[in-house]
């Protein structure tokens, strides 16, 4: 017997059992039980708030200002010292949260926007459509990921769309987003293949629902939890990718980023200037750990097999 919690009207069993305990409600209840997950969520919320405050100009908008002598060690005035131009390392670290989270968010959205429809079409229609999509993602998957991202980033930075140069942040979103949808596409394809022969889909089909409606209104909502789990894992991956690209000189040109800070600090370590590296590394460490714990907990919470 198959349980389809999001489709109680089509599922077997009494509706009363399901009432008030939807998958999401249940998942949240499970998530809340884990203390580390809640702490991690709080850390993520703090980063998001910092990023929002930076984006609205309320925080670290003056990161480019000279606040003291160059290469000043951490002090009461400047907790994380200053950089080569006498700028506050703390402000740059805070500002970089916005850079990283923006890149991760946009790149994730692009990947999901490509991966989900492609996976759903391949899984639902099968045949030539499936063959083509499988061929396409197999080609992409056969190229080493970092090389592909670097190649996209190199090409896109010289591209201008409607007079708007893609150099800098847009090139990174696109490079990451356009190369990162393969895994999600595979996942959704497999899941949709399972769903397309289920009773609720057969029922929807026999009611005369269009294919578009079946995919969008019936199947996709049933795989949303997978998208969410993938998003949480992907997000942290993209934060790391942005750091790597920035470190390699392909990151944002003007805005500070943790990758650029580490890149600058690697030379400064020889002078004994450890604070820029420390600040950027700690910032990456906390968001990475928090996202990893939270996504693990989210996966556990959303996995129906673990349901008690």
């Amino acid at each position: 017997m198959t349980t389809v919690p999001t489709q109680p009207d089509l599922a077997d069993g009494p509706a009363e059992v399901v009432k008030g305990r939807s998958l999401w409600h249940d998942a949240w209840r499970r998530f809340r039980r884990k203390k580390m997950a809640m702490i991690s969520l709080a850390v993520i919320v703090v980063y998001v708030i910092v990023a929002l405050l930076v984006a609205t100009g309320l925080l670290a908008g003056d990161w480019n200002e000279e606040v003291g002598p160059r290469y000043q060690a951490p002090s009461a005035d400047h907790w994380f010292g200053t950089d080569i131009f006498g700028r506050s390392t703390l402000r740059m670290t805070l500002y970089s949260a916005k850079t990283s989270l923006t890149v991760a968010l946009f790149a994730s959205v692009i990947s999901i926007c490509i991966g989900v429809p492609m996976g759903a079409m391949a899984g639902y229609f099968g045949g030539k459509v499936d063959e083509f999509i499988v061929w396409l993602y197999s080609v992409l998957a056969s190229i080493p990921g970092l090389l592909l991202i670097l190649a996209f980033a190199f090409v896109l930075r010289d591209v201008t769309v409607f007079g708007y140069s893609l150099q800098g942040m847009p090139a990174i979103y696109l490079a990451l987003g356009l190369t990162g949808w393969v895994y999600l596409c595979r996942l959704i394809r497999g899941e949709v293949m399972k769903h397309r022969s289920r009773d609720y889909v057969t029922a929807a089909r026999s009611y005369g629902c269009s294919q578009k409606r079946i995919i969008l209104k019936h199947i996709v909502p049933n795989v949303t939890h997978l998208i969410l789990i993938d998003f949480s894992l992907r997000f942290v991956g993209y934060i790391h990718a942005e750091v790597i690209l920035s470190y390699l000189g392909l990151g944002p040109v003007k805005d500070p980023s943790w990758g650029k800070m580490i890149d600058a600090a690697k030379l400064e370590l020889q002078r004994g200037h450890w604070w820029e590296l420390t600040a950027a590394t700690l910032a990456i460490f906390f968001i990475s750990v928090a996202l990893n714990i939270a996504s693990d907990a989210l996966r556990d919470a959303l996995d129906p097999k673990l349901k008690t």
Binding site: G249, V253, D263, A264
Partner: peptide
């Protein structure tokens, strides 16, 4: 140049020129 020193050099020029009110776009 695309290394750290090149980027810092470009940033230094950008900061110097922006100080007087000119906008500069860096291309490495």
């Amino acid at each position: 140049g695309t290394d750290t020193s090149a980027r810092q050099y470009a940033e230094w020029v950008e900061r110097s020129v922006e100080k007087i009110g000119l906008d500069v776009k860096i291309d490495l």
